[in-house]
């Protein structure tokens, strides 16, 4: 039995028919064709599916779709689309600091970092490590990811866009 839900997706209000058992990840990938969020494990353990719901980073592979009603959802595609320069400062920093290798964890990693900087624009290195500790990356060893996030925070670009 399909149900209708309304929420804000990347800044725009959307209304969509969903099966109540769907996850948010399924809705984003299969219905909205926003494939930035990845399914790396489907069990909330790897963080590749991380998106923001009402300002918090959530693992969308476990997030029940009916819970999205009336909420504000941001994905990595939205960050780029709604940034004046076409890239959010985090996305830019990830590119410039070598924080991207295979790239599979990257969208989720960026969304976790975004949620952190929105809440805490001046994080310590420990804050950064904690914020992305649910996002597994096998390629980079995290060092350049942490550097990228630190750069954005130091430049004061953490908050504001999108």
């Amino acid at each position: 039995m399909r149900r209708s839900i309304t929420f804000r997706l990347n800044g725009d209000e959307v209304t969509v028919e969903v099966e109540p058992h769907w996850t948010l990840l399924y809705l984003l990938r299969e219905v909205f064709e926003l494939t930035g969020a990845k399914e790396g494990c489907g069990m909330g353990e790897c963080g590749a599916c991380t998106v923001m719901v009402n300002g918090k980073a959530v693992v969308s592979c476990l997030y029940p779709v009916m819970e999205v009603e009336g909420k504000e959802v941001w994905t990595v595609e939205g960050l780029a689309e709604k940034s004046p320069e076409g890239l959010h400062p985090l996305q830019k920093a990830f590119i410039e600091r070598g924080a991207v290798q295979c790239g599979f964890c990257t969208p989720g990693m960026i969304m976790s970092a975004k949620a952190l900087l929105d809440e805490n624009p001046n994080p310590t290195e420990e804050d950064i490590k904690t914020a992305i500790s649910g996002n597994i990356c096998r390629c980079t060893g995290y060092v350049q990811i942490i550097e990228a996030i630190k750069t954005v925070a130091e430049e004061g670009h953490g908050k504001g866009t999108a």
């Binding site: 930035g36 790239g103 990257t106």
Partner: peptide
């Protein structure tokens, strides 16, 4: 910077 990083940070890499 890695040449394909733009695609990867914006979710466009398939």
């Amino acid at each position: 910077p890695k040449r394909d990083a733009h695609y990867k940070v914006t979710g466009q890499a398939l």
